[in-house]
Each structure stands twice: as C-alpha cells, then as structure tokens.
Nucleic acid binder design. Sequence first.
DNA 1: CATATAGACTACTAAGTCTATAGACAAAAA
DNA 2: TTTTTGTCTATAGACTTAGTAGTCTATATG
Lengths: 153, 153
Amino acid sequence: MISKKTKYGLKALIYLAHEYDKGPILIADLAREERIPKKFLELILLSLKNSGLLLSKKGKGGGYYLGKSPRMVTMGQIIRIMEGPLAPVPCVSESAYERCEECESEDSCGIRMVMKDVRDSMAKILDGTTLADVVEKIDKARKQGKGILDYVI
Amino acid sequence: MISKKTKYGLKALIYLAHEYDKGPILIADLAREERIPKKFLELILLSLKNSGLLLSKKGKGGGYYLGKSPRMVTMGQIIRIMEGPLAPVPCVSESAYERCEECESEDSCGIRMVMKDVRDSMAKILDGTTLADVVEKIDKARKQGKGILDYVI
DNA sequence: CATATAGACTACTAAGTCTATAGACAAAAA
DNA sequence: TTTTTGTCTATAGACTTAGTAGTCTATATG
C-alpha cells in the first residue's frame, strides 16, 4: 500500500498534468478540487518541487506547475521519489540495491527470485506509464460516460 | 518494501516447505539456519500458526511444521496474511476493498486504473507461485552451482 | 513604496508500526 | 518430576504517518 502522502502527490501531479497549459495552479484550488488537506498538500508540493518535478511562482498569479512535459514524467519516477524503491526487497532493487545480511547466497534465494519477477512487472507498468498517458486514460473514461454520473445526479 | 517480519516469515515457511517430510523443526534450528533473531521468530511462527499456515508440537521432538502441502500454499496467501493486501491502493484490492473517500468517481480515477494493473500483475505472480514452486527453484539453482560457492570456499 | 497574495520553511504532535527483548507460563515426553 | 519446547504478555526505543500551526519571504500591482 502506498501512503496517503504518495496518493495525494500523485493526484496533484495528475491534476497539474491535466492543466499543463493553464499556468500556475493555486495550492488552495488543488486542495479543494482533489479534497486534500491544504496544509498537508503544501508540504507535499514543496517536496515535489525540491525533487525537481514541480516549479512554483510566488505572489499574485502564482502557484504550482509541472517542471517538465507530462510526456516526460513516469509514474515510476514519482513513486520512487515519494515512496522509495519499487522493489519488495532491497536485494532486487535497481535504484537502491542492498544485499540482505541474513542471506547466504543471493543466487539461490527463493524470495529473491520471486520478488525479482514482481519488481520487474511493476516497473514495466509504472515506468511505462507517463502522466500524459494517465491524463489520456482519464479523459477517455470520462468521455465514455464513466464517472459522468457524479455530475448528472 | 515488505517488512523484515514478512521476510523472516517467508524464509521460515520456505525452509519448512523444504523440510516438509522431516517432522517438526525446532525454532532454534530455524533461527540459526536462517539467521533470524530467535525471540522475534517465535512471535512470527506463532502468528503464522494462529492464521492456519503452521502447526506445532510441544515438548521433546516438538517444533513447527507446515499445516498443509507446499503445493497448496501460495506466496500471495502468505504475503496477504503477513503484510496485508497486495493492492497499492485500497480501491483496487480484491481481498480488502475500500472506497477512497477523497475520490469523486472511481471509474475515471487515473491512479486507480494504473494501480489496478499493478495489483493484477503482482497477484498473477504471487498467487501463481506455491511454496513447492519456490523450493523447486531453489533446488534447481543450487544444482546449477549457483550459491554452491558458499560451501566450497 | 505599500499591501495583498501566494508559496517556503520550521516546529510540533498524536497515533501507530517496526524490530525486537524479557520473562513467566503451559504442555508433553522421558 | 524434570527437561524440553512452544505460548503468551508486556515493554521499549526508533521510526513513520498524517497531519496542524505559525512565521517568514518573494512578488505583482496600484
């Protein structure tokens, strides 16, 4: 399970990707639209800025916006930044490899063999999906009437 | 990342699967062989017993042993018992579904769409791999000389 | 320049999880 | 009845989670 912080961060980034051409977005607007506690969102956006994904502008007309094209940011990058390595065990991580101290031989470790497969299949999906892909999926689903119900009721 | 507790639990279960026909195994032996803190392992084995995966015998000749055939226990079952649902977000969990409060429409939620794919691919691997499969993989790797090095040196 | 607007930054906290350790207790076998 | 082995409860320090509060700083605009 990802933390709420990570989920909020993803929501924010997807929202900003959706509004990519609309200039800076206010924290307050983002918080209201995505129903995220505003003060908490501040911290999250700040940390995403410090890790290079977001840019911001202070003062009137300010707000947050994506630092690069939604085509250039993958879900894998975001989750690694917010949640740490994708790998279920450190010994199969590509980004943060660490040997298991209690393990005798890596090559004959059953856990490692299975978890390697898990990591790889997660990475395939998450590193293969950009923010632009996600926005596209959302728009397609909305067009198909899925979720439109919320506004019709 | 899975917790150390889960990793220790997996190690123990795989070990017991490997020794499935050898009768009860002492906690102390298991702890020594797999380099797991003994007192911590006690708690882990007890909880695995309480969730039905293990059986035990007290007194001389006692110890822990698998409650069912290694063919009948999947990695998915074990991880769900020890770590909770596989799903990265509650709204895509099959075993512990929960609606996201802050989400307007599930059908047009981008996070949900991606995480559903992640969950499904994890489940495919973990629910498709039994303890017997893992033991087999280990034995095959050892036969191929991988990890034999440890004993040759 | 003044001021309203917005993000930046620091600090704090309550609750929960993780990784154990200690010690008394209960059952079973010899 | 003694030894062996698992059972159970309690405790504890370090860390993480999910926030909240308040102050500081930059900037656009009149």
